[in-house]
Design a protein around this nucleic acid. Structure first.
Ligand SMILES: [Zn+2]
Ligand SMILES: [Zn+2]
Ligand SMILES: [Zn+2]
Ligand SMILES: [Zn+2]
Lengths: 154, 154
DNA sequence: ATATGTTATGTTACAACATAACATTTATAG
DNA sequence: CTATAAATGTTATGTTGTAACATAACATAT
């Protein structure tokens, strides 16, 4: 477990104490699996990697429940357009989590989580409100090609 | 088949002729199923409704292929966050199809398709381009509560 | 009219993603 | 030490989607 992951886990532990919930060993390990991956993973891929990384086979059902927990506590996001899960890129940031915006490369499948600029989001919200609709679960998922893949010969 | 649906089908036929592709009876019927629904439908729901509406049981796999066709020709959109399909709200419009933005009610599941305002989309694109990422498949799916559901006692 | 190619549709099997229902274990408050 | 709730395990099943291959329908060339 890299130093960086170590720090993120520590931060998560603290956040859980504050929230009055428990980051059990298995929940923590699922989070470590996600933090160790450069790509988002499906629940079944997490299942496989958990086995490899921790020499222990967790039921897929339990993976889903632990993901539910981690998502509820905002340590993990679900990419709805890909049916995959990814660790939040801002666990160690102290500022409030902004509306996340995911740039998903359809070629190499890397995902970059960027906070959507406040003024753009405000405009978007405003334009939506005028239709009478109220947003929730705010999250944008945008598909395209990452810088790396663009500069690469096919 | 309502008058309005009739008109949309006619327009679709014309568009197919122009594009040099064929809107076969079954493809047309799948489109009619979607046009007849106030909600987006899953492929399996389309399968059920097709049976009911046309007294004919189409293989689910064929449904998927007809959806592929209808999506390719821009008569239908897939809601990636819901794994559901919905007829485009602008088939009869003559203007170019803008980046579609779907407002999805998590309570009653109605979906409103609105064109995202050009200047907002431009800002968004610009902010994304600065990260080196190039967008494709542009489509926004936003979840929330529709006007109707907000004004309704739970 | 026959052969050939092309597109559309059907069939079977299975992969991938997810939840329901209920049992058991573990933590912890009284 | 129990009573209770929370976490995890187990089994079964539901939902969404694709791969691989076969056949049908239609168009075009011989
Ligand atoms: Zn995040
Ligand atoms: Zn890439
Ligand atoms: Zn549309
Ligand atoms: Zn609603």
């Amino acid at each position: 477990m890299s130093l960086n992951i170590d720090q993120i886990i520590k931060k998560s532990q603290e956040a859980c104490v504050l929230a009055g919930v428990k980051l059990t060993t298995k929940r923590k390990n699922v989070l470590i699996v996600l933090l160790s991956s450069i790509r988002p993973l499906s629940a079944y891929e997490i299942f496989e990697r958990y086995k490899d990384q921790f020499n222990e086979s967790l039921p897929v059902m339990s993976i889903y429940r632990m993901l539910d927990f981690l998502i509820r506590e905002k340590f993990v996001h679900k990419l709805e357009t890909a049916n995959q899960y990814i660790a939040c890129a801002h666990i160690t940031c102290d500022h409030q989590h902004e509306t996340p915006q995911f740039l998903i490369c359809d070629n190499c499948h890397v995902v970059k989580e960027v906070g959507i600029k406040r003024n753009i989001m405000a405009k978007l919200e405003q334009s939506i409100q005028s239709t009478g609709f109220t947003l929730s679960h705010q999250q944008l998922e945008l598909h395209g090609i990452c810088e790396h893949c663009q500069n690469k010969p096919k």
